Computed example of a mutant assay.
Amino acid sequence: MAKNLMRQRLASAVTVSDIASQCRISVSYFGHAFANSVGISPYAWLLEQRVAQAKDLLKTPSIPISRIALDCGFTDQAHFTNTFSRKVGMTPRLWRIKHSPTGEIPR
């Protein structure tokens, strides 16, 4: 249930407190139970989902990176770029170029 709630709200500001409340359990219990069953914290899992969604959107060169950042729930493009780079090891632009069929982005 918690994963589905978080997936449905990827683009919005979702907090662990919100999800715990909707699951009708305490934040502390939710955090421990989620980490025990999934292996990572709820916030880390949410970031992984946002980055995965961003990768899918980055495959469409016509979507601006700034739009992808907002659509995936990041506060701005800088936050997105920092998080993406930390998780993936390269910037969203470089990832897009490396995963485009021609190796370059049309202007």
Rank of each mutant, 00 (worst) to 15 (best):
S17A: 15
T75A: 13
I40W: 03
G31Q: 03
F84N: 00
I40L: 09
E48V: 00
A54K: 01
H32E: 15
P101Y: 02
T60P: 02
T75W: 09
K98M: 15
H79P: 02
K55L: 09
R107L: 10
S41G: 14
R93W: 11
D18T: 07
P61Y: 08
D76K: 12
G89M: 05
F80L: 13
K98V: 10
A52P: 07
F34I: 07
L57W: 06
I25C: 05
T83Q: 10
S21T: 12
G89Y: 05
I19M: 01
V27W: 03
L70E: 02
A44L: 04
T83E: 10
G31A: 09
T83R: 08
V38G: 02
I65F: 08
I68D: 00
P64G: 04
I19W: 00
D71T: 05
M6H: 03
C72V: 03
Q77R: 06
N36V: 03
V51H: 03
L47V: 14
D76W: 14
C72P: 02
L57D: 05
S41K: 05
R93K: 15
R7T: 11
I40R: 02
C72W: 01
Q77V: 12
M90L: 14
S85D: 06
P64H: 09
L10E: 05
I19E: 02
H99N: 15
G103L: 12
A11D: 14
L5E: 08
A52H: 12
T91V: 07
G103K: 10
G73P: 01
R24K: 14
L47G: 02
C72F: 02
R96V: 00
K3Q: 14
A69G: 05
V51T: 10
K87C: 05
V16P: 00
G39D: 11
L94V: 13
Y43E: 06
D56W: 00
K87A: 07
V16W: 02
L10W: 04
A11K: 15
R107F: 09
L57S: 01
R50A: 01
